[in-house]
Design a binder for these strands. Structure first.
Lengths: 221, 221, 221, 221
DNA sequence: CATGAATGAGTTTTCATTCAT
DNA sequence: AATGAATGAAAACTCATTCAT
């Protein structure tokens, strides 16, 4: 079996074709998974949505679960790519953190469907696939860990080293929280207010004795 | 149709029996939902697990979805009951917040399976049932809102009124986070460390100009 | 086993009670069978409709099919009773025929639900029960045969003896036809017009050379 | 959805295949419906009888009710086709009526199982499907209406125009009567005798003042 | 490579009937 | 006699996957 990109084998050898078809599958499946959830979406529907016959689709995957993995993996890859893009060429750790948090929150606002999907359907993956997805999540979190550490080193951030990891996860979760609690928050705060306030909370922990700073505009409002 | 407790009708009239059997169903179903998820658990498995024949089980529910609702509703009721219990007879708002957060985190540690289930399976409920579940979540969050407001009134807490709701949701989410990020946090922090640190983060926001304080007594207890 | 009225055994010995309860069952079941058909009506629904518990109902019947038989039998008994009533104390055969046909049509108009039920659900009975129902139908038909024969004997009707039976069945069917073709006839004819015209058709065959007579008002209109 | 012949959608696209498989389904289902009735026949039995797997069968229908509709529709189509064939190229209205009635009775004799099925199971169809079936029945009845009208116009038949429709329905019903009263008539008359006698009855109404004629042989026998 | 018809195990749900109380 | 909870066989229908063309 060929076509082992992403660890999912395909019967088709032509790698360019595999890539193109999988792109179609991911796009079609994503739309449906968001609308109806993984279990309530049938393989037939996926095939129809992405413009392939059911037979052809199965040339590029081995099971319905593979589709879920492809979708989840694609989401993470996209998130990581966008986040790295946003924090490239940053000088100090503090500035990097501010920017990265802002970008992360913006991304979460844009990609809330994605995040929801990850939260709700990851458990349907096989142990192996689940591990790969969680590893990706760890890698993304590690971006924030890196920024935090840089800030500690360059003296712009104050944080016990042993809690760097926890803060990185906090950043991740407070970002995702906008998507999975929108049913409660949406009516009371705009994404902007939400971002401003949560960023303040996060930074307050990392800039003790240095109150004010980047977000003082917020304090005044 | 009789037996309308929880809004789920039952064919059986004897209310005591309905309550007892539903307790069985909830318990059996919960075990299985945690282990395999809602969709991968069959009604026959639920019946077997809770010691009822399939026919008998259907005397007490109307559809498989009802079982999910019963389970989710029970979880929330339990969470709310325990949380209210923990914050009864509290004097100042600040003390109440500290205790409530500690209890909430302890509960989340104990009931992580429950929380995970709510996060992953709520979407499988009908719109109506989903609304009822989310309303319960709002009610629980409102407990924290109440405590925060009391603290603002008695002067022991500092917080802009418009962000009381957000802080309450933050408390909820940072508590739940322990359950849905245990795969990443479990290896690095104990629940105790996690609780201490997150409580500090939360309180720092509500006790500005009053750094330190309440949390060393907690260390001693 | 006691209570063998109608050939259906009952567990209950008190004959008066059996009769009363069965009356309830017939009435409740009839309503439901007309509305939803035999197969789509459940025994629970029948019990509820007739004000008995399911357990009690089963003290008076042995199976759901028994209920259908009781209903069908009751319909026929009623039809026969009313028809006999209508032709009692009649002098000549011709007059008897005219009256009986008129009464039969009137009855069919009133009891169309009953007739429809017999047509549609008889096949669901056991062979034995079906035979008993068809025998009743034959007995009712025989009333018309008797009238026709009397008419032949007293010279008021003209009909080959070998076709007496066919004419009796024709009378039965043209009466029932109003019920099972009402979807087509109802919009075009009133029951009165229908009766007048069909009676004319039937009588014309039995009164050759004696045109006119009882129905000449119809010829003129 | 493809394959919308008859208004019943099919998942299979190849129209020739749909037609062939539905032919199989109709044939198999018809046999079973006649033997056991619609409700007592299971979908698995139908599938087995027509040589398809249950899954395959459901590629060509959407529900069990669809099978009933297909069967009923096929019966009517067949009846109509045969009847039209029989009355093609007829000269006078009277001759047409005689031939059409004869053919109709012959058909009813042949297809009595079909007719019985229509009488007993139409009520199990959805309102929409029922309407389509009754419309077909009206169309067939309209064939006789047309013949009667032609006869009135060319002077070979005598009948009040307002009762043309009723007579057409009478013809339909007296034909069908042979099938649903065979349990009573079968022992006493041959189909030939039955046909001769009923035709006489029907024609006597339409040929007043013209006694004798086509059926005088029957008067003598 | 592409297609889509075929498959049948597996799913939820119903309901006539029984029987302990 | 009356009750109604318990039962489980059986029903309709679905859908991931395969494989011949």
């Amino acid at each position: 079996m060929m076509g082992d990109e992403n660890g999912i084998p395909s019967l088709v050898k032509n790698q360019r074709l595999v890539q193109e078809r999988r792109r179609q599958i991911i796009q079609g499946a994503f739309t449906l998974f968001v609308r109806k959830g993984f279990h309530k979406t049938t393989t037939r529907e996926i095939a129809r949505e992405c413009g392939l016959s059911i037979g052809t689709m199965y040339e590029y995957i081995q099971s319905k679960e593979d589709v879920l993995y492809l979708v989840c993996d694609h989401i993470h890859t996209e998130l990581e790519r966008r986040l790295r893009e946003a924090v490239m060429g940053i000088s100090t750790g503090k500035e990097g953190l501010t920017r990265a948090v802002a970008e992360h929150f913006r991304l979460m606002g844009e990609m809330s469907d994605y995040v929801l999907l990850i939260y709700q359907e990851t458990k349907s993956l096989s142990e192996e696939a689940k591990k790969r997805i969680l590893d990706k999540e760890k890698e993304i979190t590690a971006i924030f860990e890196g920024i935090l550490q840089r800030g500690i080193q360059d003296g712009t951030l104050t944080l016990e080293p042993s809690f760097v990891k926890l803060m990185a996860h906090n950043i991740m979760v407070l970002g995702q929280m906008w998507t999975f609690r929108r049913w409660a928050l949406g009516g009371h705060y705009t994404l902007e207010e939400y971002t401003r306030r949560q960023t303040a909370l996060l930074l307050s922990e990392c800039t003790q004795g240095d109150l004010g700073g980047d977000y003082d505009d917020e304090r005044e409002s």
